[in-house]
Amino acid sequence: MSRFNKQYTGVYPILLLLLLVVTLLSIRYGAVEISLQEIYTSIRNWFTSSESMTLNERIFMEIRLPRAILCVVVGASLAVGGALMQSLFRNPIVEPGLVGTSSGAAFGAALYFVLGSAFQIPTAGEWALPIAACLGGIVATFLVFILAKSKHTGKSSIVALLLTGIAINALFISGVGFMSYMARDPQARSITFWTLGTLSGANWHSVLIVGLTSVVCISLALKYTKHLNALMIGEEEAQFIGINIKRLKLTILLINVVMVAVATAFTGVISFIGLIVPHLLRIM
């Protein structure tokens, strides 16, 4: 998490503008033709009387706009999660999924798809799936953390965390595979959709939840920039300059698991963003 390089300061407004343009394009164009006029009236009607909205206006306001916003928010969460993990593990090829969060969440979701109705879980309505996924992500991450702890020192070394993460990941991905093998056709399809990652289920509830978690977690993460930069020099070196490594690791992992598990719970597993965005920004 390096500081901004002054040489590239001018690039940031351009990137921001680009994000805005791409977002606007994505809400303007789609399989259903929605004119600029309809976009304008839908926003106006949204604040006044939502009952008198036409179908196209509702498609825009209830389907397309939340989808675009969720996309931006999830992208930001995964990117910051990736930067956190890469700094924590001092490894450039780490992404949030590596400590088991995404695969754990995917397993939680698969378990819900296949066995949810069989166990007659008191239905939490549309929240049941996100909760199951979130729990799966948290369980997997803490499993990694516990298993990676060395008996002799009581500390978890970064290499041990990384290796355990990969092992747990493999285990949970096999679990997802087994679930989709057992599942009936519609369930198997839901699992496939979910492991591919999709934003098409977005609504204002998901935007609100993912948005709030992201804002809180990202602002917390930014507070730890200096600590993580110090950690980049080396674990022991960081300890010498007075950083509580054990607490730092736990905090960063916690921020990451909450942020990624919540995002993954609503959109499914989206990979690569967490890996590549920190690298792209590091160039600058």
Partner: peptide, 18 residues
């Protein structure tokens, strides 16, 4: 409803009163 999906598309269709 057991033969159409995915679930989120079905609920979106209901939400839009199609």
């Amino acid at each position: 409803h057991s033969s159409i999906g995915p679930d989120h598309v079905v609920s979106q269709l209901k939400q839009l009163d199609i």
